[in-house]
Every structure is written in structure tokens, then in C-alpha cells.
Design a protein around this nucleic acid. Structure first.
Lengths: 345, 345
DNA sequence: CGCCCGTGGTAAAACGATTTACGAAGTGGC
DNA sequence: GCCACTTCGTAAATCGTTTTACCACGGGCG
């Protein structure tokens, strides 16, 4: 029944040849009308436009970028899209891309180097013009054989100062320093720094900032470091452990988002008054922080600036592949609110 | 200086022809080794593998899908990637895709129908095999001329029961009903429902659930509805306004995430004890909810199930484009915690 | 021995757009 | 009127892969 079908039921979009036939011109002319590297007479231009409109023609991106040799697509690799910090970055990158006539292809690595490698392979197969990577490891590329055939890439947030790629990240040393100094100025001497993981440079930088602030104030000996783990629960447990020790700290500096949530949970669990009995400085990047009471004194990274600077760095790199490697630091914002206060006595 | 370059500095990946030459076979044979529709003798198979390995050959996805006619890529359209609910959905979809050998291409619409249309056009140009869409409007496609040449698509979370697309969404009527009934059972009679927007069906469904619960308990006349707006701040302001009226409600049911944060802020601002003087039922989808005190009694949508069911619906649709339209509802979870309590007196 | 069939290889035709090479027609200057 | 030059159109080559059509070879069977 029904007439013969020349093409499969799905995926039968009109091609440039269909448009050409309908407009009574050659495919080359249609191409010139649509992306216009060369002039086309007004009357043929109009009939092409009409034909394209009538057929609902949409250029086939596969074919086009196969021929042109670039895709105007940037691959974005983040550890976890559910994390508001990363999804915020992605949102900013998307805006940058839209502005520049690019599109982004987002994948997440689960912070797992093997998954990361696989995902990047697939972005390479898709011939992205560049990559923005929040690396799972600081030695990005060491195991996987990158950067053998990698397109231009910029490492963001992590792996600052990498020897083979441009990097853009927050000034994490300053972040650690600012938070600690604030607590010291409030009179605290027993300050515990809670972090998630000591195998990441950006986290160790925060610890370094903490140490520097302690040292400059003659408190080097009072260092107390808690390595919580890569989840809220692990951080909570580690902090609870710390609370059971003979001398309870008067202040906590939670140097990651997970550590911050873990600290809050532990403080609640031990029924410690915040900020009455303990002061807390955290890391935040969520609207929830604004409804939390007491308002959290916290470090916040400049996500938009991070995204903008990494984007422009990547564009520069694409423009001049052999230019000197760059490593950029973005300042952090420290907001003094209510969760840390002057030490009584 | 330096030898002659045949190809541009960037973008020179080895092709299947390079591999063929190195292995001493034809391109067709290489293709058969790599994706294997036909048998290849062991020795040539091995030499092809070696050559591919040595050259670091990565198949060009553009060329491959141009020829094959499908991309094994699913386009995902969400209103806002920074919103944890949507980024959570995307994360689950990504996992589904990885399992099924697909990849996803994520774009966000900013809840703006024009942007949405543009983004979808570009996904079509990229010839995605299917679309998962959290639509900006319930009448998705009405203005834009879709679904003329749209690939198979499933509408998720919003626009339930759409006449031209499969839909998968939460049972929002039940969500509204459950939360309200809980408050009624706790003795509340003055229950304000706060929502963000009355132009979305999924939000009106929650209101309907609220109304049904009131009606079934003889409280139809006590209905109090506050339309906050599409931001935390707008919701906060609207609720503050409500608090200034002669009879202050004893309970608030915040039927969106923004409304929930707005309600909390307003309650804090008016220094109303929670849950002592007012009970609150919210909508949540963030780890922050677990550190908030009192623990939030709240509705949570089953994101993972939403993602899984919409994925399988899309796969079914791709498999049989002419099958009957489906409209699926996913139950919601209602967690009774501490922010709503028995009405004193 | 002649025939058929299965196996494994190759060359060449697609896929749909862009770009190159070339030619026809028109314009202007002398 | 002729040459140089511009304008605009077309045919064909190209991008890298998959797939089709075809061929050569060897084995099994009547």
C-alpha cells in the first residue's frame, strides 16, 4: 500500500541538492547563498532562500564540518555535573560559547582517570576544536598517553601549573590563607583545617595557605589537619572523630564544599553552638548557603571569571597553538558573615 | 627550516587510509577489522590492529555518522544546568547513555522558548538520533513549527500529556495532595500554598493536589494561594507580603524549590519559630536540605527513575516511531522530618 | 574434471556539504 | 572593436568512513 519510499522513514532531511533542484540552481550556489563566501545574484539568492524555507532545510553539521575540517565545538570535561560548582562553570561556558558561535559538548568523568580518558577519546573522535578540562588528577595525561593527539586544551580549576597545558584556577593558597587569617584575627588558636583529599594540588594549596597564616602568626605548632574524604559523610565522620579528642578546637576551617556540609552536620550532632562555642569558615557555591543560619562566613570562587578566563585562554590557544604556556590564577572572594566570631575570653 | 608539511599544523589525525597503507591492506579491510561486519583473516587483522595502535588512529565520528546515517547521540535540552534538579537528571541520563553506547549533547534553554528553538535547531543540524526535552512551555512546539522535522523526542518533567510527544513526569497532583494532607492531619487549617508560576502545568497540578486535599477535608474555603515568581527573592517577597496580612498562616507548603528557599528566608526575616510557630513543607533536591535545621519535611522527585523511564521511552520511540503515544507519571517521595509539626491547641 | 560455494580481499560508490577550476556573459577603457 | 577584468554560475573534486559490487582462490562434491 502507500507510495514507494526512497528513503528510510526517519532521518530523511532535505539536502542541499534538494534545495538546489527546487530553486533551479546548482548546489554550489545554494552553499554560497547560505554561508556566502561569494556573491550571488539577487534573484537566485531569493529563490534559494524560498526553497530552503519551503523544504525546511537544515544544514547537516556532520557533512559540513567533515569538509571544513573544524567543528566549532568545544569539549567540556567535568568531574561531576551534579556538583553545583561544576554545573555553574558549564553554564557560564555555555554562554561564552553561544556568544562566540561555538557549541559545547559536556561529558563527566566521575573523577575517575580511566573514565576521563575514555570520554576524552570520544570527544576527540567527534573532532572537537578544543577542550576545557577539570582534570581528575593533577598529573593529567601522564598515564593516558595524552597529549599526543589532543586538540588545544585548557586545564581548569585543578592541576594548576601543569607542564604541558595552559591552566586557569583559583588562587587556592590565598583562599586558605584568608580564611585562616580571619580566624586568627578573631582570637582563635586551635583551628582545625578540614579537607577532602590530600592528593589534589588545589586542595594542598589551601592547606599551604593555612600553614602560612599559622606560621606568620607564630602558630605553626598548633596545626591540626583533618583529611575527611570525598563525601559529606566521610567528612562528617572525620570531624566527629576530632571532636572526641581531649582539646576541642575553637574554630573549623572547612576547605571544601563537602567538608563544609560535613562540619555543619558534625556540629549539629554534637550539639555545639554555632558560632557561640565554635566558629566555622566554609567553602560555598550554592544558593542554599544564603538560607542557612547562621549565615556562613565563607570563601567563594569566582566561577564566572574562571569560566571567562579559561574560555579566552582556550580561544587564544586555538588561535596560536605554539604560543608560550600560560598559568593563570583567579582571586577568590572571602565573605565575612556570621558563622565565625570573636573568641570569648 | 624544517621539512615540508603536507597538512596544516593542527587537526592532522591519521585516517583510515593511513592505517591501511601501513598495514598493507585496503581501507575497506581496515574498516572491517575495526567495526567488523565481515570476517578478516587473522594475519591481516593483526597487522591492522598494530598499525592503528602505532598511528594512534581514532575514527572520525563526523565521517562515520555521515555515512551511516545515525549519530548514536541524544540531544538533551534543560532549562538551566545550574539547577541541581536538572543537572541531576542530566547526570543520570549520561549514565544511561554510557550504558547503551550512546552519548548525550546537553544544551540549556534558559526557560526561554526562542532560545529553546534555536538550541534544538542546532541539535537537529547535528543530526541527533533523539531528544530528551524539559520544555520551556507546556505547549512545546506550537510556535516553533515543531514537530515538522524533529527526530524522536520525549518531553520530561514538564508538559505532561502533550498531544504530539511522549511524556514522562512526576505525579505532581499527588505531590500537592500528599504535602497538604500531611499538614491537615497535623491539625493545620490555615495552609498557604506558595508556587513560582501559574503558567506551567506541572505547577498547576501541584495546586490541584492541594485543592483536592483541602476539599476532601472540608477546607475548600480556606484556600490561600501565593504566586511567588521565578526566583528565590520573588518568592521571599511574596511570602513576606502574606505574613503582613491579619491572619498569619500556621503552615506553608512551598511547592517549588525556589518557593522553599524563599519561605525559609521570609520565616527567618520575620523571626518566626520553625516549626514552633509555623510549619513548613517544601520541595527539595539538594544535599543542603540534609544540613538545614530543622530537617525539612519535603517532597522529593525521583530523579533517577524519571531519567531512566524517559530514556527507555525514547529508545522505544526510536525503535518504533509510529507506536502509540505514551504519557507516564512517576510517583514522588514524601519525607516526613522536622519542619512541620502538630498544631498546638 | 567442472561446478558451486564460502572466504577474504579490493576498488569504487556512496553520505552531504564546501571549495576549486573553469567558463560564459557583461562592462569599461582605449 | 578588442582586451582586460569582474561577476556569477556550474561541474567536479574533496573531506573520511562505510558499504556495495566484484573478483580470486581453494575446497568439496557429483
Amino acid at each position: 500500500m502507500g507510495g514507494k519510499r526512497r528513503r528510510p522513514t526517519t532521518g530523511s532531511s532535505p539536502t542541499i541538492r534538494d534545495v538546489a533542484k527546487r530553486a533551479g540552481v546548482s548546489p554550489g550556489t545554494v552553499s554560497n547563498v547560505l554561508i556566502g563566501v561569494r556573491g550571488v545574484r539577487a534573484d537566485s539568492r531569493i529563490s534559494v532562500m524560498k526553497a530552503a524555507e519551503a523544504l525546511g532545510y537544515k544544514s547537516n553539521h556532520m557533512a559540513s564540518s567533515l569538509r571544513r575540517g573544524h567543528t566549532r565545538t568545544i569539549g567540556v570535561v567535568v568531574p561531576d555535573l551534579s556538583n553545583e560548582f561544576f554545573s555553574g562553570l558549564v553554564t557560564h561556558w555555555e554562554a561564552q560559547a553561544a556568544k562566540a558561535g561555538y557549541e559545547i559538548l559536556v561529558v563527566s568523568s566521575g573523577d575517575n582517570p580511566e573514565t576521563e580518558t575514555r570520554r576524552i577519546q570520544s570527544l576527540i573522535a567527534r573532532r572537537v576544536d578544543g577542550l576545557l578540562i577539570v582534570a581528575a588528577r593533577d598529573d593529567f595525561g601522564a598515564a593516558s598517553g595524552f597529549p599526543a593527539l589532543l586538540p588545544p586544551a585548557v586545564l581548569v580549576d585543578r592541576a594548576s601549573g601543569h607542564k604541558r597545558f595552559d591552566t586557569v584556577s583559583s588562587d587556592n593558597v590565598a583562599a586558605g590563607y584568608d580564611g585562616t587569617l580571619h580566624l586568627i584575627k578573631l582570637g582563635h588558636r586551635d583551628i582545625v583545617l578540614v579537607t577532602s583529599d590530600d592528593s589534589h594540588l588545589h586542595l594542598r594549596d589551601r592547606v599551604d595557605g593555612y600553614r602560612r597564616a599559622l606560621k606568620e602568626n607564630g602558630l605553626a605548632k598548633r596545626e591540626r589537619l583533618v583529611i575527611g574524604g570525598r563525601s559529606v559523610e566521610a567528612c562528617r565522620a572525620a570531624i566527629a572523630q576530632e571532636f572526641r579528642r581531649p582539646v576541642r578546637p575553637t574554630a573549623i576551617f572547612a576547605s571544601t564544599f563537602f567538608a563544609t556540609l560535613g562540619a555543619i552536620k558534625a556540629i549539629h550532632a554534637f550539639d555545639i553552638a554555632l558560632p557561640g562555642e565554635i566558629s566555622l569558615v566554609g567553602f560555598e557555591h550554592s544558593e542554599w548557603a544564603t538560607v542557612f543560619q547562621p549565615h556562613l562566613t565563607a570563601v567563594a570562587q569566582r566561577r564566572e571569571e574562571l569560566a571567562a578566563k579559561s574560555w579566552s585562554t582556550l580561544m587564544d590557544r586555538i588561535g596560536s597553538p605554539r604560543a608560550k604556556l600560560r598559568s593563570m590564577k583567579i582571586p577568590v572572594d572571602f565573605s565575612i558573615r556570621d558563622s565565625a566570631q570573636q573568641l570569648a575570653d
